[in-house]
Write a protein that binds this DNA or RNA. Sequence first.
DNA 1: CGAGAACTTGATTCAACTCAACACTGGTGG
DNA 2: CCACCAGTGTTGAGTTGAATCAAGTTCTCG
Lengths: 249, 249
Amino acid sequence: MTYQDNVSVIDCDKCPLRGQDCFTSFKPDEVSFMQRFKTGEMVADAGTELFIEGARSAQLFTVLSGMGIRYKTLEDGSRQVISFVMPGDFIGLQAGVMDEMCHSVEASTPMRLCVFNRNRVFELFQNQPDRAFALTHIAAVEEHFLGEALTTVGQRGAVDKIAWSLHRFFCRARVLDLTKDDTCPLPFRQQDLADALGLSLVHTNKTLAKLRARGVASWSHGVLWVMDEPELTKLSGIDPERVQPRPLI
Amino acid sequence: MTYQDNVSVIDCDKCPLRGQDCFTSFKPDEVSFMQRFKTGEMVADAGTELFIEGARSAQLFTVLSGMGIRYKTLEDGSRQVISFVMPGDFIGLQAGVMDEMCHSVEASTPMRLCVFNRNRVFELFQNQPDRAFALTHIAAVEEHFLGEALTTVGQRGAVDKIAWSLHRFFCRARVLDLTKDDTCPLPFRQQDLADALGLSLVHTNKTLAKLRARGVASWSHGVLWVMDEPELTKLSGIDPERVQPRPLI
DNA sequence: CGAGAACTTGATTCAACTCAACACTGGTGG
DNA sequence: CCACCAGTGTTGAGTTGAATCAAGTTCTCG
């Protein structure tokens, strides 16, 4: 399952994410504050449930590496994937400010997570206005993204939905430097994508085949290959995908 | 259109919303801070665009009275209603922390808004940790709601979608004390509801008729009448609708 | 090598969409 | 004052995109 890995904890100082230019830069005292705020690291195997809907959690995480999914489950067993979780994402904010999580988070690959203590979140508001602002910024960005997802799921057809999803993922991967040429890892199941877009597994599969046949994008064996990026961008309906640096917690 | 109404500005001290028990209480110094933070009031006619997608805005608002919709527009002209805006809602957070809004906001009824200055948001983080936390809390609640909306739009059938939407609205209205017996104002068009749920106008109309015929709920002439609340709740798929007090800005 | 999970593909069904007409309302101007 | 119009709501008929059902095929891993 999961285990604490106290030996090889990374210093915030040397955090491999912080340097990337898709994240806003830290002031020196912010780094040292985060170092004190951080209570450890955790490694999770693929399949681990990091959070469970409705549960209170004492811990909050920042993803150092690996990927996962946030999702909600309905009474009838159907599932809505809310978003894909990637390195740099902060998870558990809802548990941090409200009393409980309103969705579950599951690791799709092995993940390494930076661990924070829930009951120290308020310290951050008291002592580190910049960090508190960053937290709010992250929440606003997440809200923005959910609005886009809602729009896609509510208004577009299957081809556009899939295209949007693949395009968005590829762009996120690129700023994280996870792409190689026109490819990037996409370690989810077709079922996950289907549940994210409100499509059936079968239709998702057929639509992916269509995009592959059209020479737009191809996803197999956990690797996404963007064959015709302009076309994918056009189908996705996203303007220039403003890549604005976002804060890291 | 809109105009400043400098004469009858309400003191935060006497804010009619603050007293309601659906909002968390303020400490005295928080009230005085908000009073200084508040730069005025605005009255908007029905139909006014409070925010326009993509624009920067110098102002942020808290809704004092009236209702509206948040929405995104797509290239092809279709529209996704992100949420319904009700008294107590804080709008413009995205403009406040990111540089621009990623959805528009339109008044559906005449609205009275409390106006704040965007460039003073950071003061709040520097001087008022409680208020800053409240802002983050609001963002997290909004994120929670959007996740629920996404789940509904993605996974449920038309009857459930409509039921969820009506139930949610009625619950929100009730905690704001806008209900009278089993009714509450619902000042939107069927098209707005359709665009919120990703349904066509025609199908929305037919589904509303179905709920009316079944004796569950009836919406006409801007008034929602909940005829069978247990049934509506059941259809909506919401557990107990935990009514947790939320902060007001 | 066998078993389960994931992915494919074709055939059929159904929920929701589009089209099209009509009813009701309130506002405007001749 | 009434004719007209634009916005909104209602209803029926026919179409379609996506769901479901049903059978494979390929992968993965113990």
